[in-house]
């Protein structure tokens, strides 16, 4: 029983990364209608950002947690302005090719500089050691990741549900054309929203650096699962993608516990089931599919 609980906890920690990545992907898809295939690469850049600023100018983990996402937000906004924006009026396939190509280029650039071996990144002093959670002990750092990701998700949800910017993002996500006919300059919000989504991926990358293998492949492996998470949660549904993130993390861990052979494919089996029974996703609205 304790082992199962511990496994569920491990799943929730994985789910933290799913949730943060799916959240950014979902906000970007909602606002721009662009499926950002470079999202995993931005996550990878986040982790390498943390490694680089530590190695070169000695920036600590805590500072990297702020600085790296900000830098990636700027990078995201520049890419949106210079590349993504030019293709949004065309067939979605063009942005698929663009972001997929961007992901490959970013990965190769990182490989050029760091090779394929994983970069070491140690946990911050404050988060060394373990917490005693009653039934089992658990590494402090992992507990921190879980709590931190929940705080970030709740904060994003509060902003989306209680502020004017959030209202505009929700409206533009649901009906971009109508929203602009009602006098809202939707285009003005597209760049910051893209930057914000990329920053969330970067944040997840920084969080991953002390506990995951930091190499150029780390994003590519993860992004496929994230797409499944977003589809299960409901494309464009912010709440859905976060909830599905934690849920999938947990279910995968439990599946892994009972049927280890299934662990890789379980998420896709779930996705197929959800698509069969609720094509709009667990928390998606049918009308938002059109």
């Amino acid at each position: 029983m304790d082992a199962l609980l511990q496994q569920i906890f491990t799943g929730l920690v994985s789910g933290s990364f799913y949730a943060l990545l799916a959240l950014g992907l979902s906000v970007i898809f909602g606002m721009l209608g662009v499926v950002n295939f470079a999202h995993g690469a931005f996550y990878m850049l986040g982790a390498f950002g943390a490694v680089t600023v530590l190695d070169t100018i000695g920036v600590s983990f805590w500072l990297a947690l702020v600085v790296v996402p900000l830098v990636l937000a700027v990078l995201g906004m520049v890419l949106e302005r210079t590349l993504v924006r030019r293709l949004t009026s065309l067939d979605p396939l063009y942005n698929f090719l663009l972001t997929f190509g961007l992901a490959l280029i970013l990965q190769d650039l990182v490989r050029l500089k760091y090779g394929v071996s994983s970069q070491p990144y140690s946990r911050p002093d404050l988060l060394q050691g373990s917490f005693n959670l009653g039934l089992f002990t658990y590494p402090r750092y992992q507990v921190f990741v879980l709590v931190f990701s929940i705080v970030v998700s709740v904060a994003v949800w509060l902003v989306l549900s209680h502020t004017r910017i959030g209202m505009i993002v929700r409206a533009s996500t649901e009906r971009p054309e109508l929203t602009s006919a009602l006098g809202v300059n939707v285009g003005r919000w597209v760049t910051p929203v893209f930057g914000f989504g990329v920053a969330l991926a970067g944040l997840a990358g920084v969080l991953a650096a002390p506990m995951r293998a930091v190499n150029s492949e780390m994003g590519g492996d993860l992004i496929i699962v994230i797409f499944a998470v977003v589809v299960i949660g409901g494309l464009g549904s912010v709440f859905g993608s976060v909830a599905a993130g934690y849920l999938i993390g947990m279910l995968t861990a439990v599946g892994n516990f009972y049927v280890p052979a299934l662990s890789q494919s379980l998420v896709f089996i779930l996705m197929a089931l959800v698509l069969l029974l609720r094509p709009a996703g667990l928390f998606g609205r049918e009308e938002s599919m059109s």
Binding site: M167, R170, T173, L178, L182, R285
Partner: peptide
């Protein structure tokens, strides 16, 4: 959006009510 700001108000054929906004938010958007 510029036309709307110049004073054109639009009531679309499907009424254009947002499912992700409350009644009050629909009015305030």
């Amino acid at each position: 959006h510029q036309r709307a700001r110049l004073g054109l108000g639009y009531v679309p054929d499907d009424r254009g009510i947002y499912a992700s906004l409350s009644v009050e938010e629909n009015l305030l958007l």
